Simulated assay, not measured.
Amino acid sequence: MHDDTELPSEGHADVRVVAATPEVARRVAEVVRRCFAATEQRSYPAGPEGGTLLRLSVDTTRPAGPARTWLESSDSASGERSPEDGPRRDEP
């Protein structure tokens, strides 16, 4: 870990996306934002070869959409699946 990097507060995560194009980085950030509350993304050049570095912070204590469903079902000790979870990989 770099000295200039602070740890995020409890329940939060800093996400870094490195992609060849800004559009690809934005698409990945959109998926993350659909699952968790997130700050506005910040993007930077990734390096001398090109590409995009995108950073955002997410609040994992406030899941939304697919993450909420997944987190709720993963907390279940009974192993039952809700219909919203969709089929397992081994199910048709």
Rank of each mutant, 00 (worst) to 15 (best):
R42Q: 14
Q41K: 04
P83R: 03
T21I: 11
T39I: 08
S43V: 10
R26K: 13
V58N: 05
T69V: 14
P92E: 14
P8K: 06
E80G: 06
A64N: 13
G50W: 08
E84P: 02
V32A: 04
V18A: 04
T5Y: 08
D85F: 02
G11V: 08
P45L: 11
L7C: 05
A46R: 03
R34T: 09
E23N: 12
P22Q: 11
Y44K: 15
P87Y: 00
A19W: 08
V32E: 02
T21N: 12
V58P: 01
T5P: 01
G11C: 08
D85G: 07
A25M: 07
R68S: 03
P92T: 09
V18S: 01
A67T: 00
H12N: 14
T52D: 08
A64R: 15
M1E: 01
E40D: 12
Y44S: 14
T61K: 14
T69L: 06
A29Q: 12
A64I: 13
V32P: 00
R34H: 10
D75Q: 08
A37C: 01
S73D: 13
G79R: 04
G47N: 03
S73N: 12
T21D: 15
A25V: 07
G50M: 09
T21P: 06
A77R: 15
S74H: 03
S73H: 05
E23L: 10
V58D: 04
R34S: 08
L56D: 02
R81G: 05
P63M: 01
E23Y: 09
R55C: 09
E10M: 09
G11F: 07
S78T: 15
A29F: 07
P8A: 08
T5F: 09
L56C: 00
C35H: 04
D3E: 14
V15L: 01
A13T: 08
L53M: 10
T61D: 12
D4E: 07
P48H: 13
E10G: 08
E91R: 02
H2M: 13
S43C: 09
R68Q: 04
H2S: 15
E10C: 06
P45G: 13
D90N: 14
S76D: 15
R81L: 11
P83D: 05
V28L: 11
Y44R: 15
A25H: 06
P22M: 07
R16V: 12
L71R: 14
R68C: 02
A19N: 09
V17H: 00
E23M: 09
R55Q: 11
G65P: 04
V31T: 04
W70P: 04
A67Y: 00
P63C: 03
A37G: 02
A19R: 10
E49P: 01
